[in-house]
Simulated scan of single mutants.
Amino acid sequence: MSGFARYLTPSEEHRRLGLACLGVGAQQVRRMNFDGRVLNCYGLMLVTRGGGWLEWGDRPRRRLPVRAPAAFVTFPGLYHAYQPDALGWSERWVLFDGPAAAAHESLGGLDREAPVIALGPGVQTLRRIFDSLNEAVEVGAPHRDVVAAALVQQLLAQLLVGRVNDDLSRVVRYLDEHAVEPLTVGEHARRLGLDEATLRSEVQRATGSTTKEYILRTRLSRAKRLLLSTDRPVREVAQAVGYDDPAYFTRLFTRRVGAAPTEFRRYGMEQR
């Protein structure tokens, strides 16, 4: 086994960023004696060459094959073991923790039930981020804890995107185009040829939101654009994004955005 490793010990101020990088490295691994372990942080391994397996969880433990290009995630408090096959593998790894990592679990990018992610062309993006991460933690690198944390966020975002397949992208594109139409979730599902439960599941996996929440956020985002790019009255903006009652739209917009539509428009114009 050969490679390099750097370890960081972030301060409390760095941990307030929400994500802390604890270590990063790369290695060429052949068969090894590894009985498994339980860590108190998350780990992300990127396998760029070769293959083997990952075993994880409480008994009965589960095992999945790992074949490059692939990534796998280990979770705090959860047993894991892994083993390259006879030819070995090349891996890059990072250890991290913080409340932002738990948020990525909630959004589906880090999945305890599916810790192995097969990668296609997206592996090149992950490799480039790891290259930057390696540079960020070199001796003498300024603000290494801050830069490393930001790069781990990029890794997790790319991992999240990598779990979205063409079918999920189709659902998101459809909702982006049709969110303002006066349709129920069931009617949207039928248009897509899905049942309502499947639509809810696919929207959750692709966006981290319920279907209703994603439609709401899409409508509000479109309303923001109309408020700042046109001089249409609030009543017309409300109708354009699917709300016939301008008073209800104003209350909803104010509660979710933190400013009334007229105030949002004024602040936006002042910042131009």
Results as ranks from 00 to 15, higher is better:
Leu168Lys: 06
Asp131Arg: 14
Phe130His: 12
Ala114Asn: 04
Trp89Asn: 08
Glu138Ile: 11
Val147Ala: 03
Val94Glu: 10
Ala86Asn: 01
Val147Leu: 06
Arg144Thr: 05
Ala150Cys: 06
Asp145Lys: 02
Pro60Asp: 00
Val164Cys: 09
Val147Cys: 04
Pro99Ile: 07
Leu64Arg: 15
Glu196Gln: 11
Gly98Glu: 01
Ser132Asn: 00
Arg92Asp: 04
Gly162Ala: 09
Ala70Ser: 12
Asp97Pro: 05
Val172Ser: 01
Leu110Asn: 03
Tyr79Pro: 14
Asp166Asn: 11
Leu64Lys: 13
His104Glu: 00
Leu110Val: 03
Val164Ala: 09
Ala103Asn: 05
Val147Asn: 00
Leu159Asp: 02
Glu196Phe: 05
Glu138Asp: 11
Arg163Asn: 15
Ala70Val: 07
Arg67Lys: 14
Glu177Val: 07
Gln153Thr: 04
Val147Glu: 00
Ala179Trp: 13
Val137Arg: 09
His178Gly: 07
Tyr82Met: 15
Glu135Trp: 07
Gly98His: 00
Ala102Trp: 05
Leu107Trp: 00
Ala136Thr: 01
Leu87Gly: 11
Val172Ile: 06
Pro115Lys: 10
Thr74Tyr: 01
Leu133Met: 12
Ala102Lys: 11
Glu138His: 10
Arg191Asp: 09
Pro65Ile: 10
Ala189Arg: 12
Phe96Met: 08
Val152Gly: 03
Glu105Ser: 07
Val152Ile: 01
Leu155Met: 01
Leu110Lys: 04
Ala148Pro: 10
Glu138Ala: 09
Leu192Ile: 10
Leu78Ile: 15
Asp97Met: 05
Glu196Trp: 05
Gly122Glu: 00
Gly162Met: 04
Phe130Leu: 13
Gln153Gly: 06
Ser106Arg: 14
